[in-house]
Amino acid sequence: MTAFLARRMLQAIAVVILVTLIVFTLLELAPGPDRAAVVGTAAHSQFLVQYLSWLGQVLHGNLGVVSAGGESVAALLATSLPRTLILVGFSTLIALAVAIPAGIFQAARPSSVTGHGLRVLTYVFYSMPAFVLGSVLILFLGVGARWFGAEGPQYAGLGQVITDWRDLTLPVLTLALGTIAIFARYMRSAAADSLDEEYVEAARARGADERRVLLRHVLRNSLVPVVTLLGLSIPQILGGALVVESLFNFPGVGFQIWQAAQNHNVPVILGFTLVFGVGAAIGSLLADIAYALLDPRVRYARA
């Protein structure tokens, strides 16, 4: 286990360093003034010197300023990140609760009417971009039926944001439906694979009924990869959050990135990209460690 952990940590460190390098290389593409806003006085020195001085600043929590003399990028991040976490947290929980049973059902009864129906629904939501789904929901449930607000919560306080279910429902639902489709596709194939395994055959041979086979053997064994799935889906979910936040005018991290892109504000996009990238790399590391804790086969096989 220690060997596996050490190896995996080293890999994660390499990935994080590469993320900073990629982000910094992207900065090289930016026009002079934008670059100067991020690297400051080092703008005229060599690439490596610039990179190291920028990295030093970042490690001190200095991600640059939003505009000359204005708010710092780190402060903007501190106000917008909790909002994104609320949106992503709620929708991921809903997605897991729906997708796990839906995926297993599809694998167990692929040719039943419900199985076919779930399959079609999964395809539809998987292929529908978040902005189409979100605008359709706004059109019919927000503007049409007036059940929910057409805009995300606009309060300054996080407590008010969480309790404003009328405005929070549509953004959460939009992100959740897209995530359900991604997870359900994965669960279906994971469950289909474990249905082919020998332990399922063995359980059936011992006379276990189908319900017991599904709950005790298939569900348990397909839950382990869900941890990996969660870790690997972080970038995709954050990308979805960007679209949802811009559609619903919800001032989270994604919304700020979108605003920054429209105003050509390179320091903001760059700082936020870095945080997203490092966050996702750490998430994938944690997922791998959790996987190894849950499934001893992994740590013996890879270490």
């Binding site: 590469l18 970038p235 954050l238 679209v243 892109a261 990209t273 997203f276």
Partner: peptide
Amino acid sequence: RIVDAGIAIPTIVVLLLIVTI
């Protein structure tokens, strides 16, 4: 590891940065 690092950054964010420039 280069692939891992690239995958960690949400595609849409990198794209936004590039098409801004």
